[in-house]
Amino acid sequence: MTGTLNLVGYGLSAIGPAIATGMIFAAYISGVARQPEARSVLQPIAFLGFALAEALALFGLVLAFVL
């Protein structure tokens, strides 16, 4: 069996952003559920946090292909 270790590395590096995205949206959902009027305040924060976490996941993906 042949292959490249890059994919294993990408799999490992995707764990962190996955957990981060889950935590961000868990907090967002429970915040909106407790206080629906806080939604417009929470939404940009949640999206920016999602963008930052997702950027790291995509960075790993791209580096797994180009390195």
Binding site: Q43, P44, L48, A51, A55
Partner: peptide, 16 residues
């Protein structure tokens, strides 16, 4: 690219 994309995300979804 990451920086510009996050800036774009902030422009579109982050400023209210």
């Amino acid at each position: 690219g990451i920086g510009a994309a996050i800036y774009l995300v902030w422009l579109r979804f982050g400023r209210e």
